[in-house]
Design a protein around this nucleic acid. Sequence first.
RNA 1: GGCCCUGUCGUCUAGAGGCCUAGGACACCACCCUUUCAAGGUGGGGACCGGGGUUCGAAUCCCCGCAGGGUCACCA
Length: 512
Amino acid sequence: MTVRTRFAPSPTGYLHIGGVRTALFNWLFARAHGGQFILRIDDTDQQRNVQEALQPILDGFRWLGLDWDEGADVGGPYGPYYQSQRLDRYQAAVQTLLAQGCAYWDYATAEELKAEMEAAEKEKRPKIYSRRWMAETDADRARFEAEGRTGSVRVKMPREGECRIVDRIRGEVVVPWSGEQDTVIQRSDGTVTYNLANVVDDCDMRITHVIRAEEHLSNTPRQIFLLEALGFPRPEYAHVPFVAEPGSKNKLSKRKIANYLKNAEFKKVYDHAHAITAKLGLETTPESFNPVLVDFYKTVGYLPDAVLNYLVLLGWSAGDRETFTRQDMIALFTLEGVNKSPASLDVQKLLAFQERYFQALPLEQKVERVLPFLLQAGFTVESEVVRQIVEAAGPRLKVAGDILDYSEFFLPDEQVPYDEKALDKHVRKSPGADWVTGLRSLLAAAKPFDAPTLQAQVEEFIAAQSAKPRPVSQTLRVLVTGKEVGFGTYETLAILGRERCLARIDRAITIV
RNA sequence: GGCCCUGUCGUCUAGAGGCCUAGGACACCACCCUUUCAAGGUGGGGACCGGGGUUCGAAUCCCCGCAGGGUCACCA
């Protein structure tokens, strides 16, 4: 039998990193077994702009390179893959369940139900519906409806015995049926709920392995009851731990971003990325631009492979090894290697992976990654120059967007901002001030105008002045870049070229 | 509260009774390198939730606690 796994996002407008991790495990398992990975859309809660809210999710998957064999956009033999288009299938299932006595029409009002649940809470009993407003016959239905009540359909769960789940990650889990609520499967407006739709879809789409987050473990007995009542085959289950908050065991939530930002390490990574969006002129709010969402990483120039590599290790491991290509992951992935306990999102470690991956990229590819950011920031650039700059920047570029830290190379000479403090320290005051003219003529005469020559000549200058190398180099740097940090001074000079260096020094002199 | 799940450095984890004086990675600290900033190199601190068993021997097996989490929706 071919392995078939699925991931079923709701069109919410964003791709949650925890969801991606679960999707990744599904994808890996399918790929590892030569099976199919299906992307189904859970849009029973019919919102208006499904397509619009879905797009960012599909884009995220494509960016990460998690391809799907069937589902949204691509179709397939077991469709439709949108729940909103499968209503008739669900209705049929509800009818079957009703006919078999595994479900019943219920006429309890919201208030009545609430009262029951509160009483149960008070008496410390399991919250189980009494079935007091259950309609067993058509006559009952008519009577309730005459009272002006509207009916919903509930599952009639067993009240005795137990449900045994064999979970590939957790082992055998035994749950007494008596604690399972008669959940609503069809709302009073006729639409169906998640548990029912899920079971029907998984069966129709021939899903063999249900790999999902552990918060669904408690839904599983209910789903098993439904699926057996419907005569469907039982898939294998694997409940993976959820992704937890930074430094806690609570489930990661997009909405708690303000809280996470209080964590210094988390904030550091957020600020780093935020600085890039600021330079791009992008409007962001913590709500939309958020390390909990995949788009965050895409926007500032992380590499999908780095994100994936970090993510796969969040709850899964293969010994001490940490670096995996996609092929490695596929070859090595097993459900048994998935951990049972929740893992917290550590964005700093994700950045560490990104740094490694980005550094390992050949120069040409770094340039390719960096170019869009320069263009987006409005610079007109020559790729040969960019190549030199990226090379000189070396490990200073952690994400592609970091190139914008070095905008002084791309700005016209007359627009380079000078950092006042740097100017004070290295150019206005002695000894820096005493060297400006000398350094200028040195640059005017140097031949050839390349890093080794410049270095040699400046060193001669340093010796002649009986100066220390450090301050001289800093004075030069500030003169041509306006900043006291950057990459090698001589490389910087060489990249800018004689003309631009001289123009900048002349301008610095007028500013001073 | 009922039911279920989980518990190794701050974080991700290795660990399937002796290879454990508990290993690796990120982070942190120190030093080295260095024209700034990065990067790099070397070193350091840092954990088996607790208590009982079983065993010659337990992080690993069993029991009892404790702690954390999930779930109990006409959300998915």
